[in-house]
Write a protein that binds this DNA or RNA. Structure first.
Ligand code: FES
Ligand code: FES
Lengths: 161, 161
DNA sequence: GAAATCTTGACTAATTTAGTTGGGAAAGTA
DNA sequence: TACTTTCCCAACTAAATTAGTCAAGATTTC
């Protein structure tokens, strides 16, 4: 199993897009600055996200990226898979052949663990994350430079949603 | 999060020890051969397992390793942690400071995921694994070179347990 | 046609993985 | 005592991966 900054950045960037949905296309430069991610690295990640239709793009001035479908329909597992991190924890990648072409002693353990992780991540959508208070807090800080807790109690829908 | 052959080998080797419990100390050479793991690599892993008292050792001819406590009391999570793979999936390792010394947008997501994995692995003991039919099948094959399915229905307790 | 933005591919330093190599130290056995 | 078996330990290494950078180009808007 791999879960590195690649996957974390992809989810973070997608969540940033979701939060700013309704403001028109969002540039990678904005995301890079808000989330503290290298712009060129983001470019690589969005290339993959676009191939999976998780985002759509518009070029030229005023352009940028938007979600490819509704935040409610994009699951964390998809995003991570799109940038190529696979959540499988078996050594054989499901083939039951990691020892001498036969099943090793612990295959089922890793297989079950993978199912757990897979199920967990595929049941959380970007919308679910946005609904969390802690996420709204951080988003607010990123917008204004500091946390304004009062805004958070209003369950303010971000402009246009 | 890291889950690589290091952690897998450690669990596999510990399970091998559990299966052969009651046969006296088991040599690393035996484990290496049965499980297809490099002997010197096993030595490194067992050095760590011993420091955590998960195994105890006897030197000299007839020596080898045994479980440090009962199979029922050794949990997979402990074994993986002992060889230094940490199941934490947050970037900040729990410190809430991965972006500019403040919490990033997705901290809680990874934190919750880590809890899931942690809980899962810490509720499965070596004994639980041994009780699985698939594990007994593989162990049987490793012993005799091929699977003898008839043995598996007798829930045969391995010699001396 | 200039500027903003996405798009692509090649390159790279640092780190990690999965080992190997080579030496010991302790214990049993003759 | 000598010999062998086992554990113990530390240093080294090839290959892969990570987290990027760099440079060039394609589209679109103004
Ligand atoms: S992990 Fe699938 S056979 Fe070993
Ligand atoms: S993962 Fe903890 S603050 Fe980002």
């Amino acid at each position: 199993m791999k879960l590195t900054t690649k996957g974390r950045y992809a989810v973070t960037a997608m969540l940033d897009l979701a939060i700013h949905y309704g403001e028109g296309p969002i540039t990678l430069a904005d995301i890079a600055q808000r989330q503290g991610i290298s712009l060129s690295y983001l470019e690589q990640l969005f290339s993959r996200l676009r191939k999976q239709a998780l985002v759509s793009s518009v070029r030229g001035p005023g352009g940028g990226y938007s979600l490819g479908k509704e935040a409610r329909e994009i699951f964390i597992g998809e995003v991570i898979a799109a940038v190529d991190e696979n959540m499988d924890t078996t050594k054989c990648h499901g083939a039951h052949n990691c020892q001498n072409n036969e099943r090793c002693l612990t295959h089922d353990l890793w297989s079950d663990l993978s199912d757990q992780i897979y199920t967990y991540l595929n049941n959380i959508s970007l919308q679910d994350l946005m609904d969390r208070k802690a996420v709204r807090e951080v988003a607010e800080r990123q917008e204004h430079g500091e946390v304004d807790a009062s805004v958070l109690d209003q369950v303010s829908s971000p402009a246009g949603v």
